[in-house]
Write a protein that binds this DNA or RNA. Structure first.
Lengths: 214, 214
DNA sequence: TCGAACATACCAAGTGCTCGGTATGTTCGT
DNA sequence: ACGAACATACCGAGCACTTGGTATGTTCGA
């Protein structure tokens, strides 16, 4: 459904340029403060092109969340941490990877769908649902590695792999908020470090093997 | 609900009513989507009263963040978890308390300053700074109990009490985002449970030994 | 004690401008 | 020649904010 047009036409497609502009501008200014002409200007198109591709600003927000879900899932699928043999190493590798990509400007590493969901959860239910699908869909991709780690370590957990997967997303979203409030990336990295330590402690059955991270 | 703080005889009632309206409406619609007339209607005053008390909508946002910082700090100071003798029990009691007040409507338990900071961090630096002061000021109140718990348990931590205090706030902010995205309070409580387990694990490490590498 | 002068707190009715959205024109591949 | 993909021009609603006014103190000299 997010591919109304046939194959992949020429690049520089107005719709794609608008979605990329939305990804960048909304992460900086938020959805409501971002005007349609902001996006048209950033994409180099006119408002005619905008309303030709999206029936409303709200519909564009839904499409932007879906575009975000597609591009980020591809991004994480190609990430190197999947190569680890040990499932726990893959989980920790994911967390390390999330910490490593906290770099550059705030609007470059923060999460579009987390930002939008927070802002429009009560005013634009369609956008909220698309954001929830993106966040939870990403969390689900972590569950199998977590479950495999539980099995391989033989630990008895009073938590579910799904809830830990969602918790990782909560920590990241919260870390982004603190980074935005303070203007400091380091506080976000600190929280990711605490998250890594939490996962280490969860899977540390006997105090025997100690792994030096990062 | 938080106490209305002290009485300021010189200040009119309209200002406080507007700040309380801001607290409620902005947590639901966000700062940008909240119009001045939204707030005037909710407070039962006219726009003349609004701009008599605040020189601009942005200035009202700063005042709302400061009002939030005042009322919540009073709210938490009066909370029961401070009664515990053991500092670790106070820390865990704080986390349990945060989990317990996740109840009712989303806009009733989520954080005003976290919402605003996320939305306006780049467009309204004054609001962002007021939000950061509120969040970090609250985090600081946890540091002494955390530090006392580290001392009383005699653990050797490779993290600072300040960073753990900030991490608790990150987890809460992230939990609120997931709750807003999914419309389900339970996912927020799950993350608070994970946070509690993390703190438990941090302080239940083996009595002595455990020489930290690195 | 009184009242003129001033200050505060709020109201009601705008003002100019920006916003999301529309109506219509133009290009172009097929 | 016909529709898809845009561009151009424009609109009405709603926005933050202003203006002018009123009611209620408060001050202070005579």
């Amino acid at each position: 459904m997010p591919r109304p047009t046939k194959q992949e036409p020429e690049r520089g497609d107005a719709r794609t340029r608008l979605l990329e502009a939305a990804r960048d501008v909304i992460r900086s200014k938020g959805f409501t403060a971002t005007t349609v002409s902001d996006l048209c200007e950033a994409a180099g198109v006119t408002s005619g092109a905008f309303f030709h591709n999206f029936k409303s600003k709200e519909a564009m927000g839904v499409a932007a969340a879906e575009y975000w879900a597609e591009t980020t899932s591809e991004f994480f699928r190609a990430a190197p941490y999947h190569a680890h043999k040990d499932p726990l190493d893959r989980v920790l590798g994911y967390i390390d990877f999330r910490g490593a990509i906290i770099d550059g400007e705030l609007a470059e590493f923060t999460c579009l769908v987390g930002t939008m969901a927070q802002e429009v959860y009560s005013t634009h239910p369609d956008i909220r649902d698309a954001c929830a699908a993106s966040i939870l869909g990403h969390a689900v991709t972590l569950e199998s590695d977590i479950a495999a780690a539980v099995a391989s370590r033989g630990i008895r957990a009073d938590w579910t792999p799904a809830s830990l997967a969602r918790h990782t997303q909560a920590v990241l979203q919260g870390a982004f908020i603190l980074a935005k409030a303070t203007g400091d990336r380091e506080v976000a990295r600190e929280s990711v470090d605490h998250l890594r330590r939490y996962v280490e402690l969860l899977f540390q059955t006997a105090p025997s093997k100690r792994k030096a991270g990062r």
